[in-house]
Design a protein around this nucleic acid. Structure first.
Lengths: 337, 337
DNA sequence: ATGAAAGCGCTAACAG
DNA sequence: CTGTTAGCGCTTTCAT
């Protein structure tokens, strides 16, 4: 491995001077010296060891991100946004996954901090309150992404979930639906889930409709439960005329459940889903969804984090709220009499 | 920040001793000292600075991965495999994206190397031959993923593309199809694309069928070109009775193109796609595809890289070839007379 | 304008 | 069994 000393020797100068050109401190440097050093670097094909630089400078130019599930296309898209923004600003990115497990989230957070990342973005499981508080205390920069944390006043990027759901439900109500089912994953401390349920309730209430608990299905994350929940909804005495699916996985499971019951969307039942993807228009039928600006979420989160890292004086936490958008396709129609 | 010196002071010992417990060199250490140090660590809530450790040990316990496109669900799944394997082995992961651009790939490779990652996994653009050769020369560990590189004899994880396509095409031929279109993205140096076209040709040849160049559509990567290619295929004098789409994006575009022409799958035309996802069964119609073991690819690549990093003596490059699987759904049927 | 020297936080001989 | 010492590769005062 070629080091700064090799370059210094080759150019016949001190390593301080080499360091100066590495850091582009050309102010008090003769053109000649600059040339000599640049040449030596070139000839030796030298690249500085970031580890040593970071150790000295006390910053790594690397940020970390902890995602609940990378294989979810939604998060993949968010990740791309983060990636692009990091690239633009010369930051490296360490990616890790909590798999929705608080312990793993904690381990990852600690791991990233011990690796001295300059900050982290986290799509939190909603636990580890103490850890986040202590991070806040030691002024370790982080931004909460998609899921906010009660009691933690930190930089946050979220989407307006209440509003997204209200629009979707209102659309169904306007179409004449009176019995609307909703399928969610176990709320836990996940703010989006809580807010989506809240949006559902608000929409009904503001239309003077009663909330029928039997139409609210909360199932746990493991694959297949959304199908079961849908079947239960469909075998109700007074079956709903529309179902609202609250995330990518549930979109698919609700559709599957309906298919299994031998019903057709939208003739027999209307459906609206959450999150939009290139294949959604090609589903049978093309599904209406509440689209979230995934890529932009990533960009915004990374930009917020980086600006915070660069800022010397602390400013008070910022909350960025993005707006979702209801995309109507052919999966809803007025209920049959 | 609390350092090893703080711990040493607190415990009233030398920092070498602290270092020993950090590295679990308990062999010649009194229980008492061990206790003292462990306590001090606990009380100070100390975590070692990985940067300093890495600088000294000359290894970071971090690997890098360069993907052509993270937002592609296929790669997201691969990434999950890599992630899990890294986690299992205590490695951190730096993720970057080349966006199919050789220059970006090169920059990322250099960036990762300067950050002293212990190795990298790369889904290469197919260029940068010289760089890879020089990496080989300096014994920098890397594994090529999904796409191999002619002239570079390195660790590689690939899927048997020729075989995957042959099975799909043979299935169509067995159903009675004689005019089978294929849509690919610009071959470039991407081995999978080259091999998939090769598989197509081999399948036809081994069935004594002529290769009709007008049935082979090669379009460039930007969104929408697959739709156009499909429309062209369908407006041919002697239109194909089946179309084979060779990747995730083309699956969607071929289906879209067919829809735009007002044709129905599989009644008017049969389709087989590439790569399998949870939503594929819910498409209209449920698409038959050649499924690749994405997650396993990631696991295998990471495992291969890590084993190589740990090995002191060099061994000759390994090539791991995984097998794809043809999944038949309702998108194919014998052509109408 | 340039170089010498100290030190970032840690590990690993080597000594004792 | 434990401590002293010399760096890892780089940046940054502080002299000159």
């Amino acid at each position: 491995m070629v080091t700064i000393d090799d370059v210094a020797k080759k150019a016949g100068v001190s390593k301080s001077s080499v360091s100066r050109v590495l850091n582009e401190n050309f102010e008090y440097m003769s053109e000649e010296m600059k040339e000599k050093i640049l040449n030596a670097i070139e000839e030796l094909n030298y690249t500085p060891n970031s580890l040593a630089q970071s150790l000295k400078k006390k910053k790594t130019q690397v940020i970390g991100i902890i995602l609940s599930d990378i294989s979810n296309p939604f998060w993949a898209e968010v990740l791309k946004g983060v990636q692009d923004e990091c690239n633009k600003n010369g930051y490296g990115l360490m990616v890790s996954s909590s798999n929705e497990d608080p312990e793993t989230e904690k381990d990852n957070l600690l791991m990233l901090r011990s690796r001295q990342v300059d900050g982290v973005i986290v799509n939190t499981t909603g636990s580890n309150l103490d850890l986040f508080k202590s991070l806040l205390g030691e002024r370790f920069p982080f931004v909460l992404l998609d899921r906010s944390l009660g009691g933690i006043n930190a930089d946050t990027v979220v989407v307006n979930n209440v509003e997204g759901v209200k629009q979707a439900i209102q659309f169904l109500i306007d179409q004449g639906h009176r019995r609307i089912g909703i399928v969610l994953h176990t709320l836990g401390n996940r703010s989006p889930r809580i807010e989506r349920l809240e949006g559902y309730k608000q929409a009904l209430i503001s239309n003077n409709m009663a909330i029928d608990e039997s139409l609210i299905k909360i199932c746990n994350l493991s694959r297949g439960n959304g199908i079961k929940a849908t079947e239960e909804l469909l075998s109700l005495q007074k079956r709903p005329t529309a179902i609202f699916a609250t995330n990518e996985m549930l979109n698919l499971e609700v559709l599957t459940g309906i298919k299994k019951c031998g019903l057709k969307v939208p003739d027999d039942i209307s459906v609206i889903g959450y999150d939009d993807f290139p294949w959604i228009p090609l589903l049978d039928p093309p599904l209406s969804t509440v689209a979230q600006p995934a890529y932009e979420m990533g960009v915004k989160a990374a930009a917020l984090l980086i600006s915070n890292i660069k800022r010397k004086r602390k400013r008070r936490p910022q909350i960025i709220q993005l707006e979702p958008q209801l995309v109507i396709r052919n999966s809803c129609q007025p209920p049959k009499r």
